[in-house]
Design a protein around this nucleic acid. Sequence first.
DNA 1: TTTAATCGGTAACATCCGTTACCGATTGTA
DNA 2: TACAATCGGTAACGGATGTTACCGATTAAA
Lengths: 235, 235
Amino acid sequence: MTPDTAVLQSCLLFRGKSAEELELLLHKMIYTVASYQKNMLIFSEGDTADRIGIILSGRVEVQKTHPTGSGVTIAHLSAGQTIGEAVLFRKENLVPATVTATGPCLIMFISKQELLRLFSADTDILNRFIENLSERLVLVNRKIEMLSAGPLRRRMIHFLLEQAVQQGSDLIRLPFSRKEWAEHLNTARPSLSREMGYLRDTGWIQFKGSRITLLDRKAMHDYIRTDSQDTGQDK
Amino acid sequence: MTPDTAVLQSCLLFRGKSAEELELLLHKMIYTVASYQKNMLIFSEGDTADRIGIILSGRVEVQKTHPTGSGVTIAHLSAGQTIGEAVLFRKENLVPATVTATGPCLIMFISKQELLRLFSADTDILNRFIENLSERLVLVNRKIEMLSAGPLRRRMIHFLLEQAVQQGSDLIRLPFSRKEWAEHLNTARPSLSREMGYLRDTGWIQFKGSRITLLDRKAMHDYIRTDSQDTGQDK
DNA sequence: TTTAATCGGTAACATCCGTTACCGATTGTA
DNA sequence: TACAATCGGTAACGGATGTTACCGATTAAA
């Protein structure tokens, strides 16, 4: 199975390459492509990591499993993003989280050995790889920011405003279901619904399904930056 | 000021080099060394990152600042560890967190340009750099695990058990003050004290100052893996 | 279509935990 | 020594939120 060059171009590792260059590369490099169905394991916590995966299509979920059996979603990844690149070069190269397919998807794998070869053959790829790692680190840091942003309401507003900027509109299309969103915010779904009700009643938002409209961005901003005091999370 | 080679050897970037090799390297490379006093800013959130810092002595604190002015400590770093390496190679190379000295310390700076030169001159250094990034990513991931481990009591026990393993004893010496610990757990100090009292009254721990003794590790383990309530991200 | 299954909103209740305030102990300092 | 600042324990209070349960709507499967 041959990967779509368009997808690879959107992948940070190969960004900047022309379709032609990529075609050439694909012929010269060693890789495998595997397809997965919903809920299938791609990487399992504790596995030894000896390759990275590039998502060619579909979506996957990265979760940290708790000893209790429950888990927290760390990230949702989709086409063009990579998995496993964080542990590949560690001494203790064990996969620290579970990666599962949330739907049918195609993953391209490149071994560590082959990656090293690519690095020395093409410095661009190396640079992209490092860039990718950095990007990931920053992303995870944002997650921390989110988790410690204080009360649920504040976290929600924080997220909504972020989305509004990202989508360039006051009309937001949520990228996931309520359940997933709750997970993302590290809260319980009913709690989320309750707060959604509050925000609606306050007249700040309006929503139907996964479409949320911000009616009073200013007030929401004010709410977030209202400086009550705080010890490390706020209130 | 010339850096101590012993410290640099403990730095992941230069691990594996002999003192002689390092001496040689130091003569051939470009760097600066700066000293800081308690509470002085080393990197400020929003700065443009164009160099990495290596801690030669002392301790620094990495904090995420909230728009509200409050902050969460992401990490404490000490001699041999690096700062700024995560953003140096990003497109948007702005420092995402504030770094301050928690006491007098010495930092060695290496510019991005110079780093690149080192990479091409010495592949080992490049490998260490990637390894370092990966290490950092995993560390931050653990922080997430911590933050989303549910109720405070669970988070505390989680942390204590982790420390016991790390220190190889039931007698734990806390690496920070209560205030700092509370920050680390993303909670308020009085809340922490309250729970400490609870754990003491339950007979699970015993403590005086920064020394904590685990009296019933089994019970604590059981408590953590008791699948009662979790934050709601159950699977 | 009928039957499940899943999703999302709502409500009641109990608990968690942040806030505030106070106090004693310790430490640094004038 | 005395004063101020910081740290850590404790307690009361109220708000935040996890839990459970129920219900209608939507979707998938039979």
